[in-house]
Computed example of a mutant assay.
Amino acid sequence: MSNSNMRIGVLALQGAIEEHVSMTKLAFKSLKLEGEVLWVKNLEHLEEIQGLIIPGGESTVMGRLLETSGLLSAIKKFANESKPVLGTCSGMVLLAKEVYDRVVGKTSQPTLKLMDITVERNAFGRQGESFEEDLEIQLLGEKKFKGVFIRSPVVQSLGDNVKPICYLNGRIVAVQQQNILATSFHPELTDDTRLHEFFLKKVTK
């Protein structure tokens, strides 16, 4: 695939869509790649892209919208064809096989079940308990990455084929499983394009 026709999609059902669009455009520029970023709202849009970003938002609402739009099974097929997917915050929740909540226990919300991980949603507390933390992510180099945590999940357990790529106080906050990446935090709410650049490099491969 030539880089000139690279198209990255941002799932545009709900959540931090525009921030991911802007950050992906900046990552294209930083890597000196030609490409465009599309809003993905239906099956036709999914067919036009080579990589998909699932933003943060309300994971229960997004899961239901994925089901009713037919995108749930289509995104599974997309990822199973080894196309790169990045999920942030509730995007991580939507990628997980199992989801727990501190209050209600195991949830029955619809998820993509693409990653062999169990997550606890809202693991760091509610909206008012949001915080930022400098994170070590070896994949992105020595310089620390500013993690923005807003009602963020945490990975409680993972399968053998899932690699933890970032910890916060001993808790797993970013993982990689082959072509799929997921973070608890919001990389799109920083001015650091490195995570989006890493994702674009996966797409160019």
Rank of each mutant, 00 (worst) to 15 (best):
H186P: 03
L168I: 07
M6G: 02
N169A: 12
K163F: 01
N3H: 14
A12L: 11
T118S: 13
L43M: 10
V40T: 10
Y167M: 10
N122S: 09
R126I: 04
G128E: 10
Q50F: 02
V175M: 04
R126D: 05
L200D: 08
I49Q: 01
S157Q: 13
N169P: 00
R126S: 13
N80V: 00
A27G: 05
T183L: 08
K29C: 01
Q138I: 02
N42V: 01
G15E: 06
V99Y: 09
N42P: 00
G87N: 08
G70H: 09
V99M: 08
K113N: 13
A12K: 05
P164T: 09
A74S: 14
V21I: 15
V37K: 02
S184N: 07
L95V: 09
E188Y: 10
F145V: 15
T107R: 15
G105M: 11
K97R: 14
K205Y: 08
L86S: 04
V103A: 09
S73T: 15
N179W: 03
E36K: 13
M6K: 11
L33F: 11
P110K: 11
I75C: 02
D160G: 06
P55R: 10
I54Q: 04
K202R: 15
I150S: 03
L33E: 08
T183I: 07
L139Y: 12
K32W: 00
K29A: 11
M62Y: 02
K144T: 06
F199H: 08
K97C: 00
Q176W: 00
R151K: 09
E136S: 14
I172S: 03
T107V: 11
V162W: 05
E188Q: 06
K77H: 11
E136V: 10
S59V: 03
K143D: 12
L26K: 15
K202C: 02
E197D: 05
G128H: 05
T118K: 15
A96T: 07
E120P: 02
K143P: 00
E129H: 14
P187N: 10
Q109F: 07
N80W: 05
E132F: 02
T183V: 11
V154I: 12
